[in-house]
């Protein structure tokens, strides 16, 4: 296949693969904690990092990573300490990040609207050699964290109050989730773009959980869906000449719809079974002299 002989496509496919793995891998914990849109918030903040990278004339990926991590930690602190009006504080952070990015980009000598667009919506074929090294290192960190600490992260995202009583370092693990999400955003920004990053964290998980029953299966399937859509989206965008980020996200939504349709008959079958079981017990209870009526209390 000639597509694999082109250096820029090799880099594109490697980046797509890593995004396909990492975005759902951290996304599942955010969804579990019902914080599905956190990735979106970090994506907004990342733009300031990209703008700063252009202004300082250094690698936007590393500067964006640093700014994202700071932004995510602030968001986590707002989440855990701020009780009232936390949403307002987050809104400030999101839109401040967005506006800051646009402003910095405009101020920098070699920034332009075209550059801004590649970060907002992704431009996978322009991933450079330097970028790919950064993406590999960051992706490795995300995978080690989300897989290695899966039992601990599962516990804090399932029931934080309970997890604290097990003596786990909950605050530290929460910060780790935030930092990992931030890192994932910068891994994914060249592939799907900052505005669509969150989609890849949430949609594969949402699609997967239509038909799964366990966390482990949901995790594995979400990653499989992630890899499937990022790779096929990248290949499609090469042949058809459409933007990679949009292609990937639309494919993911397609998978979600397909699995939802598939899940409907499955759920109906389960509901029928449950209804049948319920009818049986009602009949038992209604039968005269059946056990159960004996315990009835008459006042």
């Amino acid at each position: 296949m000639d597509i694999l002989e082109l250096a820029f496509m090799q880099r594109a496919l490697l980046a797509a693969l890593l995004v396909g793995v990492t975005a759902p891998a951290i996304g599942i914990y955010l969804v579990q904690r019902r914080q599905a849109l956190m990735g979106d918030g970090i994506g907004h903040v990342a733009l300031t990092g990209v703008g700063l990278g252009f202004l300082l004339n250094t690698s936007p990926v590393w500067v964006a990573t640093a700014v994202c991590v700071v932004g995510a930690v602030v968001m986590e602190l707002i989440r855990s300490y701020g009780k009232a009006r936390g949403d307002i504080a987050l809104a400030m952070l999101f839109y401040g990040g967005m506006a800051g990015g646009v402003m910095l980009m405009a101020l920098s000598p070699n920034g332009s609207n075209a550059n801004l667009t590649t970060y907002l919506f992704g431009s996978i074929t322009t991933v450079s050699e330097q970028d790919i090294v950064a993406i590999c290192l960051l992706a490795a960190f995300v995978i080690v964290t989300t897989v290695g600490l899966r039992r601990q992260l599962f516990a804090i995202c399932q029931d934080e109050e309970f997890a604290r009583v097990t003596g786990l370092p909950v605050r530290l693990l929460n910060l780790l989730v935030a930092v990992t999400a931030a890192v994932t955003v910068t891994v994914a920004m060249r592939v799907v773009g900052l505005l669509l990053v969150s989609a890849l964290m949430v949609i594969p998980v949402a699609a997967s959980q239509q038909i799964t029953r366990s966390f482990a299966t949901t995790f594995a399937m979400a990653v499989a869906i992630g890899v499937l859509v990022t790779l096929s989206g990248t290949v499609t965008s090469y042949y058809v000449d459409v933007p990679s980020g949009a292609t990937i996200v639309l494919l993911a939504i397609g998978v979600f719809i397909a699995l939802t349709l598939l899940a409907a008959p499955l759920a109906r079958k389960r509901a029928d079974k449950a209804a049948l079981a319920e009818r049986c017990t009602l009949e038992d209870a209604a039968a005269p002299g059946a056990p159960g009526t004996a315990d009835d209390v008459r006042v």
């Binding site: 599942i28 969804v31 039992r151 995202c157 997890a163 959980q209 366990s214 966390f215």
Partner: peptide
Amino acid sequence: GGVPATVREVVSAGRLARTK
């Protein structure tokens, strides 16, 4: 939680106080 989990997965979380 927000993601499906089995009974065993939820109960296993209780063991973290020992395994850390």
